[in-house]
Design a protein around this nucleic acid. Structure first.
Lengths: 113, 113
DNA sequence: TGTCCGACATAGACAGTCTATGTTAACCCG
DNA sequence: CGGGTTAACATAGACTGTCTATGTCGGACA
């Protein structure tokens, strides 16, 4: 079943996806990878994806180079900068604190969560 | 370390907190309980709390009765309706799907998450 | 030549939390 | 008895980020 991507998590998902596939992914490919890795739960809409990439370029977390896909279409290939990797680590740690705090408030066993 | 409450999760946290403390909590008490149960990670701001309670009253997920606190101040005591309990279950299940999907994309072991 | 589609991009809607401010009334202390 | 403090409720507006909807461009292929 599909779920919306929680506000604030998309940048982290993109950074981690790029880190898992160095020098291989353009924008469209990132969306496909996230959809696949999430088991189809997350569909990254283009209206979310491209603004996120723009933000992250401005922040210096990623850089993009224009290139060509296998079937000769123009596309922008992204990679994570050192600053982006630090941001990814920060985001993952923060996300962990949040989920642990929510689990405590919900007071559910790990299996129920 | 303090964290913002992720958009979309506050209603679930309030419902679960009320379910854990039937017939005992007014608005302020809910905020204190969430702060306490989260280990101080979440501080529920009043500007988030009261609009959330209003939404949930309108939805019929909770009902509130005016009463008096131990030191004789007026306060509104809330409890969860059957519809609210169903909503809570839906929200918890949805939240579980989301966190599992994020964990897959992050590709971290449960301990790292 | 014309349609389709991959890929990038932007505008505006919308939802929910935060900051900031305001109100009421009980309590405490001098 | 009067003034400050605080509990408790409440609202307005800023802000952020995702979503829907729409648009563009160019390569492939019939």
């Amino acid at each position: 079943m599909r779920e919306d991507i929680p506000p604030g998590t998309l940048d982290m998902l993109i950074l981690r996806t790029l880190a898992r596939n160095p020098d291989q992914l353009h924008g469209f490919g990132i969306a496909e990878a996230i959809a696949g890795n999430s088991g189809g739960v997350f569909i990254v809409e283009e209206g979310s994806l491209y603004p996120a990439l723009q933000r992250m370029l401005l922040q210096g977390w990623i850089v993009g180079d224009w290139g060509r896909t296998a079937d000769n279409r123009r596309a922008r290939y992204y990679r994570v900068t050192p600053s982006g990797r630090r941001q990814m680590d920060r985001a993952v740690r923060s996300y962990g604190r949040v989920t642990r705090a929510i689990a405590k408030v919900l007071n559910l066993s790990p299996l129920e969560a």
